[in-house]
Write a protein that binds this DNA or RNA. Structure first.
Lengths: 205, 205, 205, 205
DNA sequence: TATGAATGAGCATTCATTCAT
DNA sequence: GATGAATGAATGCTCATTCAT
């Protein structure tokens, strides 16, 4: 009680970051206030400024680590990329997906930019890399938009069916839509069996 | 606008509503302040309270009219519904789509509820009505999520390809994805050939 | 409906004054707003400024007429003065006694001055005139304070017994206290008999 | 006060309470604004909200301590009660008597209630306890009204004689009036001697 | 190092008052 | 003469941030 906390800078900043992540994702930047974050972390609000300088910087750092974790690692087969993005989208039961935090804070120009960047780096670029059609950017963005929309529907709008669905419920549809959007000439094509439907669809387009 | 538009209640309220619509959609509820809205409309901020009572009420009225306009009218063929929803999603060059305003204000419980309601009434319910599979709700929500994601990508994230795309660029993909998601047994089915792929895909799922 | 009111200046000002009197007495100057007064009178708030110039002037004029009516007329026997002041104090079932309005508005220097003046002109001066002792001013003020306190207790504090009391309930006490405060050497004294009771009462205590 | 009294919660809250007490008593609740209170106390206005939560709460706390101090302690002889109430009424040279603050804020329902309660608890109830006549409540209220009126005359109306009077100037009258109002059968009666003086005083006045 | 007292800018809202019709 | 649209000053209150200990 005299030493209320371990005076452990690492633990304090980690707790602050976690609390910030949760609040920013749930409420967005504006509606989140630093005192509540500090209270959630069980520390004094001043430490936010001591350790991070400003609310803005805390926001940036709170979103950064998960960004990296979300960036697709280069290992793994290319044809797994869509599936892995779906898993990333569906993975979070917790509401603190960084994309959602950015979306909810998108009244800030910098957040909009960052949302854009992150969407590109994590989704569009990776998907586009699988394709070689002239309209591959649009195709990649269309699939990205779908994943983004699913995320929003689940974490913000809370539409009932999607909120309760798990990856397996969605996979069948996802595979087909992926086949349609990534279409022929995609790197996925040679991968084979599960793409058959996609191939069929693609053939007719 | 060039003329100070003096002593005209109708024009003043209309200007206030337009300015509010734009600011709320761009910045969300919290980040929007009444003085800026009034300044955009070229009038004194107190008129907001005179005519609307509160910022909250202004928000509601600013979003209301477009809501109605977005609700699908019951006329028209059922199989046109997805296409019409796509047009509604793509129609707005202006950023002030009410769905976006609600999304950006989603830190407020009431806005989340309203977003949910509006998503259901305008999208999910109408799409679900076309289907009879046991999983028709999930299918409808998946298509809704896509339209929502496209909207977000265009108006908030400003992804380049989607932002510059027009309905015709997207229609081919949209038709196929619709076929996949609404699948067999849908009211769309008898409409024809392009559903074949969908049916095939559906069969294999 | 096309001619909503008789456009009768006299009636309008009278209605405004009456409404103002009631509101000012009930709420004091600050807590009363001109729109409510106008609404009570059934006219537009602007007329207050047209006819009275300002809220302040309306206040002054609203309190003025009753002032005069409360000033003791010079006719009548001097020994009736205390009794008449008691009746004035007890008379008002309605809450709009001007003294109360002034008291409730006494945060304004001008109202305090006016309260002082009115208390002096209506009460102290008249009572003091009945006396010739060196401490006649203090005696007069002590009786004035009592009448004032009774008024406050009835109209503001709403103490139960005093609120429900009528003049006859209080008269016996009043006569004795008057006898004590105005005391011997007062102009009342030679008047005689009813003071005896006071002395008797005093004796029995 | 000369020294900025920095970083001292106790001193700051005390200063704020004192400043609030003075302003509320002088101006009433509505006419007092928090910025002025803070300026009087030499601190920033936001500290009012930090320490008290709201203007309303500050008002309550500013009036509370004096309330307690004014409540008659149960010790002491019952027959001293009237005298002690007189002293309490006359004691305050400072204008910040809580009764006056309440009176000046009486446009607020809650203040009216509290005024009523306080008047009853501090004055009426204690006086009534000395009596056993059927009309003891009225008698107690009449004496209460007088003390209240004296307070108002001194602190609000500033009538000259009462404002400059001290307890000793008023005591002779007070004893006689008390004798009249509390009358025969009062608990004061057996106390005896000092009432005789009242009678004597009456005779000699 | 960490605590909490202090601060100033900003917000929604109200009100008396003026101006144009 | 009378209506209601327009205005600017002020108020209670919140928040990120800094300063002193």
């Amino acid at each position: 009680m005299t030493q209320p906390r371990k005076r452990n800078r690492a633990a304090t900043t980690a707790g602050l970051l976690a609390a910030a992540r949760a609040r920013f994702a749930l409420l967005g930047y504006d509606a989140t206030n630093v005192r509540d974050i500090a209270q959630d972390a069980g520390v004094d609000a001043t430490l936010i400024f001591r350790y991070f300088g400003s609310k803005q910087r805390l926001f940036e750092e709170a979103l950064a680590p998960i960004d990296d974790q979300d960036d697709l690692p280069p290992d793994g087969e290319p044809e797994d990329i869509p599936t892995r993005l779906l898993h990333s989208t569906m993975r979070q039961d917790s509401v603190d997906h960084p994309l959602i935090a950015l979306l909810r804070s998108s009244s800030r120009e910098e957040c909009r930019e960052r949302l854009n960047t992150q969407l590109y780096d994590t989704y569009v670029r990776n998907l586009e890399g699988l394709l070689d059609q002239p309209d591959r950017e649009l195709r990649a963005e269309l699939l990205t938009a779908w994943l983004l929309g699913i995320n929003v529907a689940r974490t913000i709008a809370h539409t009932p069916a999607l909120s309760n669905a798990c990856v397996d419920d969605i996979s069948p549809f996802f595979d087909q839509v992926t086949a349609v959007l990534l279409g022929s000439g995609s790197a996925l094509k040679p991968a084979g069996a599960e793409q058959t439907a996609g191939t069929a669809a693609d053939g007719q387009v």
